[in-house]
Design a protein around this nucleic acid. Sequence first.
DNA 1: TTTCTTTGTTTAGTAACTGAAGAATCCTCG
DNA 2: CGAGGATTCTTCAGTTACTAAACAAAGAAA
Lengths: 407, 407
Amino acid sequence: MSGPARVTHASTRAAVLDLVRAAGMISRVGLVNATGLTGGTISTVVRGLIDEGLVAETGHAESTGGKRRVMLQLNHFARYAVGVHLDEARITYVLTNLGGAVVARISRAGCGEAEDSGVIERMAREVDALIDSVGVERDRILGLGLVSARPAEHLGFGQALERATGLPVVLDNDATAAAIGEHWSGGVGATSTFAALYLGTGIGAGVVLGGTTYRGPSGHAGEIGHTCLDVDGPECRCGAKGCLEVLAGPAAVVTQARADRALSRAAGLVGGRTRAAAPVAADFAAISRAARRGNARALALLERSARYLAVGARTLANVLDLEVLVLTGPSFAIAGSVYLPVLRAELDRAFIARDAHPVSVRLSPSAASASAIGAAAIVLQSELVPRQAGLRLPDDLAADEPPVFVR
Amino acid sequence: MSGPARVTHASTRAAVLDLVRAAGMISRVGLVNATGLTGGTISTVVRGLIDEGLVAETGHAESTGGKRRVMLQLNHFARYAVGVHLDEARITYVLTNLGGAVVARISRAGCGEAEDSGVIERMAREVDALIDSVGVERDRILGLGLVSARPAEHLGFGQALERATGLPVVLDNDATAAAIGEHWSGGVGATSTFAALYLGTGIGAGVVLGGTTYRGPSGHAGEIGHTCLDVDGPECRCGAKGCLEVLAGPAAVVTQARADRALSRAAGLVGGRTRAAAPVAADFAAISRAARRGNARALALLERSARYLAVGARTLANVLDLEVLVLTGPSFAIAGSVYLPVLRAELDRAFIARDAHPVSVRLSPSAASASAIGAAAIVLQSELVPRQAGLRLPDDLAADEPPVFVR
DNA sequence: TTTCTTTGTTTAGTAACTGAAGAATCCTCG
DNA sequence: CGAGGATTCTTCAGTTACTAAACAAAGAAA
């Protein structure tokens, strides 16, 4: 053993780093207990992480009868990540540090649906401006997370952005990103099972099961907006009737409010009959403000929406056996105080496994920009805690086999 | 390297064995391609499995220009497992081989809720009779799977049965067992995401995500029976209104049928007003027979139930991004032909991710005893393909840390 | 001071893989 | 039939990432 520091297995390094992040502060002995690895291994792995600058020693714990434990913490400013949320109406950029804390933010009016090269160049310039505004060296930025409601439609967009910015780009769903952001920021436990209920213009959910993000085979897991709450309800664009989104989504709330002349005037709704995203978001905000000012009809509309959403959330919690439900996204940022108690009450009252454990319902502390923060967290996770590749298990085993069997 | 056969890492051995099982028949080269391991490693692992008698060489594939591949198969009769399903009304015992095929079966009237020692002794005798009936040596039986609707209530029961039979006992939920049984028997792909919709007296679902069983933190995942389909519907014992189970469960179908004098007479219903499990199951079977004979009212009742169930199944598929839905359990064994087309149509029409992939809906070939078979499959899986323990990630990191932080 | 407890490091040993060489088997074609 | 190429499977030295155990360091207790 004459060489320098020994390189450790990637997944072990990642697991230890993830534990340091999740714990906030932990000692080597704590890591031994948490991982089941021996002290020697932890010693080597931690030395590697300290050499890379990812982890730092930050003081001592009180003695428990012998030598004091040296406490370890993530070096939050060792690396950074860019998160970009492509909304229908806005583009939000954030730069976060290793801890998922926002160190810079830009928000611009959206590009609509145009994907021409001008948009790419504009975005690359804005990412540059974001980075320059805090003077972070380029090589300490791990990558760029690009999230939207339909990431599959932005594959080429992501590649172009990768070329234009020189940063590795990862794509994902905005609701999934929000969930990963909550997980990374440490609000929920390391191995907990939770969903991030994302309320923007539509309704979605990001799902983390036992600490692992669940996206589903085609990335559509957590599609809660088309949960049926009334088999004879109004028709939905999905082909079914009485979907949660049609009954209680922000767009539905806004449509109902616009039909109410008095409320429209009192709240100052601007949208007319349009279903475009920007006016819907603006009008939903206006309705929420009216409710806060004490407008009973606005409050009633929101509470009706909350009751439906609570029933949908209960279905989600029942199916997934959730421990935690985090409310996030721009609409919850505005109207969360109306929704939160209604969802809490419903899950306390009728969650099927409530005898085994409660479902803790919380409002995200950063609901307004959860997806952009989550986009950055996806980069942090994919670069620092890659899921162990392990064994590839292809769907089609027969393809590897010669077609005909003899004797 | 003078020693005998080298022992291989447990999880690799398990992964290879699982691939052999899932593929049915595969060569060493096929395993190399499927796992990403090298030929040398596969050679060693396969030799070990052959030495243990778990795998056998069973002929050759046609040549692709060089040496023919030696085909490997699970040695189905190398080991056995006992599966026991504690229903409310019946106890079903099966003995299966490694492939999950039933080699012996016993069914007895249930024990009700009594858990006295007499029941344990009777069950131990019946397990003995099951094993003796096919003359399998005791040491080739891996263990006993005991499944029921509420496994948490049978912990002591399981321990007693372990002592009485001398076999290791594992407990699980009956719907989860059914899903594992389908997975083990190879009807669905090795890495597929699917649910087993279990229709007994109630409604449940077992969930397998990307080839891994998902139980949820308290074992309640897949609780689909209390999905709300009508926020103003009839009250349910769970505390909510309009639950799928109340609207469309077999018990609800039977209640509706009993209220129909003409149908009661035509179908020969026996249950009166009781909601006990055995009469409900009998009357549900009678209604199904009447529907098959052409009784329009019986058929209408079942189709109404199927339409509700289809909507609930769609919600499940949407939330989990399912690829496959297997219909199983005693009630689907009887009335599956009515339910299957209705569920298929609903998922073809309104599954939200249908542009990405369809949901394949199938009737289990062994729906009637799916849970008992699955109970045996759980034993096979837990003994032969234990999930890699990997790193323990405790929920409460702080507990391992001294309480006070200094400087 | 001495002794004990606890934390963290070092080091030899080992399990489980990889990579490369070689043996075995089968096909093709002169 | 036999040479030569293709493919499959085995063998084995080398590498990696761990463990176990001895050791060193730091504080508490006496």
